[in-house]
Amino acid sequence: MSRVRTVLGDLPPEELGVCDAHDHLFLSSPQLAGQELDDTGAARAELAAFRAAGGAAVVQWTPHGMGRRAADLPELSRTTGVRLVCATGLHQAAHYAPELLDRLRGRLAGLFVSELTDGIGTSGVRAGLIKVAGGFHALDAHARWTMTAAAEAHHATGAPIAVHLELGTGALDVLDLLCGELGVPGDRVILGHLNRFPDPVVQREAAGSGCWLAFDGPSRAHHATDWRLPQAVRDLADAGFGDRLLLGGDTVVAGARSVDGGPGMPYLLRRVRPRLEAALGAELVRRVLTEHPGRAFAVDWK
């Protein structure tokens, strides 16, 4: 029977509730020096604000080696009442010291499998998804390495693979590799940041593979986000792909948290939800926020 693997254990997908399908409570990278998400108190307050707005679950896409602080997640989930899903995986090479990547050569798939089944370090927290990343309109050697390892870990566990698309590009190349060459079923792939490169032809072709289309990172004026989102998702729904949609906040720097003066996680429910309800109807938006994440992240764990 399929279950969503949260930091407090596996649960039926219908119990996930209103879900931010892509966000971060903790994240650090040399690319974001001085803007790290590393404050447990702020993470707790942000979850409480999301809960007060009607949220029930958050999927943290922070992968291995980027300060995901897995050991802190169970207590945060218990104290706020928000269900949390943690990731394994590996981001683009620029986010890591070269020596760390060298240590992972030849053992990356095994690391992913271990974090999905045995737990992350000594935390006891098991990951519920694998996060990897493409490049700008292309897949470099690092992306192919990490995606090949992710596919191997998927075949061993059934875990879904969530993909950061750089500025929303490269979706079809990712699907050619994961679903074509590496044999991952389309419905086990989640493409993130499609709103940042709003090509309706690419979005419909990607949806035709059966994958999940994540529209995440609203409130960012430098991306084609909020103002194009209603039309993009309505067009996909009209084309028969309304059942492939996910929504997320993707808070990646401290100043973006609502408790630090930014839009944060509550923005997804406070501003994005009513705008989409006006365009799509309340029932489809309800399914996008509740039923779809349950299906996307549920696994018949092997």
Rank of each mutant, 00 (worst) to 15 (best):
T6N: 06
G9N: 11
L11G: 05
P12E: 13
V18P: 05
D20V: 04
D23Q: 07
L27I: 07
S28C: 09
S29T: 13
D38S: 13
D39S: 11
T40S: 03
A43P: 00
A52D: 05
V58F: 05
P63I: 06
G67H: 06
A71G: 08
A71M: 07
L73M: 09
G81M: 00
H91M: 11
H95D: 13
L104Y: 06
L104G: 03
L108V: 12
A109G: 07
A109V: 04
G110A: 03
G110V: 00
F112D: 02
V113H: 00
D118W: 02
R126I: 06
A127K: 01
G128C: 07
R144C: 13
T146D: 03
A149T: 06
A153F: 02
A156E: 11
T157M: 07
G158Q: 12
I161F: 09
L165P: 07
T169N: 10
L175Q: 03
L177T: 06
G183T: 14
G186M: 08
R188F: 13
G192Y: 00
H193E: 14
L194C: 14
F197S: 15
P198H: 12
V202R: 12
S209P: 03
A224C: 14
R228G: 07
L236V: 13
G240W: 10
L247H: 05
D250V: 08
R257M: 11
G262W: 00
P266A: 12
R275G: 08
L276G: 00
L280D: 01
G281K: 07
T290R: 09
V299C: 11
K302E: 12
